[in-house]
Design a protein around this nucleic acid. Structure first.
Length: 132
DNA sequence: TAGGTGACGGACC
DNA sequence: CGGTCCGCCACCT
């Protein structure tokens, strides 16, 4: 059950990203109180059924690139198309101008999620180092 | 069951 | 800039 709620929290956070803006995997992890779990955010998005109303395409890696991978079976290229349609230029390597479109969530928005239930606490996510 | 592989990220060179 | 390592942990042999 734990994983399902983690996925929902990720999808909820991603849904907050405004049109035309971008967030990183790590940023989403931090937003839901799972600092350091960027990799799992990627898995949660991988589990998102497509097509979806969740703006999953607005999540890129911290290097300012779309994470390209054959294992994505084309969703990476779809992501590129969707971002371009939103007015965010992306080159053929998946590189984009993260700084110019980076979403800076307002404190109030983040608080809503940080206070959200952390699931039945399977103890899977570090808490000791959350003191970031 | 052990080991390899990532939709990650940060440190370091 | 690029490349390597490492911590992380879900998934898949």
């Amino acid at each position: 059950m734990g994983q399902a709620s983690f996925d929902l929290r990720v999808w909820d956070a991603v849904s907050l990203i405004p049109f035309g803006q971008l967030a990183t995997y790590g940023q989403i992890a931090e937003l839901i109180g799972a600092y350091g779990c960027a990799r799992q955010v990627g898995w949660a998005l991988r589990r998102l059924p497509l097509p979806s109303a969740v703006p999953w395409h607005r999540v890129v890696n911290a290097k300012g690139k779309i994470s390209m991978s054959l294992s994505r079976e084309g969703s990476d290229w779809m992501q590129r198309e969707m971002l371009i349609t939103e007015g965010i230029p992306v080159d053929l390597e998946g590189v984009l101008q993260l700084q110019q479109h980076h979403w800076r969530p307002k404190l109030s928005e983040g608080q809503c999620l940080e206070l959200a239930p952390q699931g039945a606490s399977s103890g899977r996510f570090r808490s000791a180092q959350d003191a970031h």
